[in-house]
Design a protein around this nucleic acid. Structure first.
Lengths: 334, 334
DNA sequence: GTGAAAGCGCTAACAC
DNA sequence: GTGTTAGCGCTTTCAC
């Protein structure tokens, strides 16, 4: 591989001039520029961004830490963010945390030692983790995605979880359901905590009240969602309706219902959180609270770029709206 | 942020000793090591991998170019690869090509200027592209994922597309279907080309022969898959069975069938390529050719790591097996 | 407009 | 074992 020195030599100019021509900064005469470009072309010169990053202090890389890219919600967010930052010449460094704080810590530290210009993370905990605090303290621009963390003092791009959950529960209440079950992963996950709270508040406001017997709170995997839903549906006083707080939980609930021979909406109603492609393919098509996953990623990317660009407005939480999409999985009990 | 010099100073040792202690190479006394580690801890020292990469010539980063992370197949492969390389201290740089050669080129060049140690790409074309050739010529280890390219002289990790397609078609032939339609994206995409060929060969071998009226070949998006399937099912001589060559095409076919009121397996049979979660949730559950997406990514990661480790065995193509999973979407015509 | 030269923070000889 | 020192390939003053 050739360096900028080689290019300069064959173009008969100094290394500095070659750098200016290739880097597109400073003054270079048209003639030199042409010579340099020709030389670069001829040598198959590929700039070394590592050296550039070291010398300039800017890596043009942005780190993203999500729970798991295999979750379509995160995949869509990653894609959205990727589109936005690449358009501005940045590269995406991706890491999975598996919703595990220790793995998240390792990911954040790896990304920081790679000197990413900024970090977007889907935090696994609602409490400010030391590694996130450290990043902020060190001045690394940080944007939280999908979940907010109090007291960290950084931008957060989320959806309106409480309102979304409420709309789901109220829809169910509208069909006179009272025993509305909840299938969710744990409240350590901030977005889930808000959705759980939204569920409880809506139940409380309707005078129905919350009941432990109606809640199945479990881990964040597909398998756990399925197991929790199955267990909930087997309880003596089975709920007549279900609200699930994310797409893995919804998947689990649909499987559990099928395994038990429960058909929506006659035997039981269901509202899921997060709309995926398959929700309209099942019978009945699912009523869901949809959230703009790609937009979430785009907005996080934009916020981060703004910070990199020097924006100093005080950190704020953006809440994108959710939308209740009524399809066929809800109705009065037969 | 503090540098290794700061650490050395507060630990009262030379910069080189601090580097050895932190880098874990060379000889360092236990006492010095402790002092250095304490100093690093106290200063909140974060190593600068950019400088390390420049000095050592090794970035510990691996670039991955897929069509689109939002495609669950690629997401699974990315996850598999990510797991493998992170375990070996490498970071994943991800880019989407949207199955566009120009975007692929830009991605590959960006990744190369970032001096990734190696590259894994899902090639958008079966012909050796200049940018891929250039990477190979420059000595960047390259592994092809999901699709092979002749004449590039690099490892390729794929599935046995021809056998997979054949098993699908033969399954359909076994139910006495003769008008078996094909819904696929174009043959520019090497894996699709092999699946199309597998379909045609199986048809030919059965003495059925290929017919343009049975083939709907289109672009790589969900929307195009849907449109193509719809168009195919509306032809005067409608096929009695369908073989779709990837999950987007399958999705489109299922939607099109639903829109036309065609129910499997009575009105039409369907075998899809690639098994996703939702295929068992629809009615009937889909018979599919499943492929080990995550394993594909893992294997690609392993191959690349082997090359980075100095393996010099001549490039080979690995073909992982597919599996026909018989569920409920096929049967004799009612 | 262009060149010389000093780093960026680290690795890796090499001498002690 | 430890320190000294010369780069890695760029960016970026600062003279000319």
């Amino acid at each position: 591989v050739s360096t900028i020195r080689d290019v300069a030599r064959t173009a008969q100019v100094s290394q500095a001039t070659a750098a200016r021509a290739l880097g597109g900064y400073g003054y270079v005469s048209a003639a030199s520029r042409r010579a340099v470009e020709a030389a670069a072309e001829q040598l198959g010169y590929v700039p070394n961004d590592v050296a550039r990053a070291l010398a300039s202090g800017v890596s043009s890389a942005i780190g993203l830490v999500v729970g798991d890219v295999e979750n379509p919600f995160f995949a869509a967010a990653a894609r959205g963010m990727s589109d936005v930052i690449e358009e501005h010449g940045h590269t995406l460094l991706l890491a999975n945390s598996d919703e595990d704080l220790e793995r998240e810590r390792v990911a954040v530290e790896t990304l920081r030692s790679r000197r990413v210009d900024g970090l977007v993370v889907v935090p696994s905990s609602g409490t400010p983790s030391p590694h996130l605090r450290a990043a902020v303290a060190a001045g690394t621009p940080l944007v939280l995605l999908d979940r907010a963390v109090r007291g960290l003092g950084v931008d957060a791009v989320t959806v309106d979880n409480a309102a979304g959950a409420r709309s789901a529960v109220e829809h169910l209440l509208g069909y006179d359901h009272r025993r509305i079950g909840l299938v969710s992963d744990g409240p350590e996950i901030p977005s889930s905590a808000e959705r759980i709270k939204g569920y409880r508040d809506a139940m409380g406001d309707a005078g129905v009240g919350v009941e432990a017997g109606l809640e199945a709170i479990t881990g964040p995997t597909r398998e756990e969602g399925y197991a929790a839903a199955l267990e909930l549906l087997r309880r003596p006083e089975r709920p007549t309706a279900l609200f699930t707080t994310n797409n893995f939980m919804t998947l689990g609930a649909v499987r559990a219902m099928r395994d038990l021979g429960l058909h929506a909406p006659d035997d039981i109603s269901l509202v899921g959180f997060d709309d995926l492609e398959w929700t309209t393919l099942v019978d009945p098509p699912l009523t869901v609270v949809s959230q703009p996953a790609a937009e979430l990623g785009q907005e996080a990317g934009r916020r981060l770029l703004a910070r990199l660009g020097g924006a100093t407005r005080r950190p704020q939480r953006v809440r994108l709206p959710t939308e209740l999409i009524v399809r066929g999985s809800c109705g009065p009990l037969a």
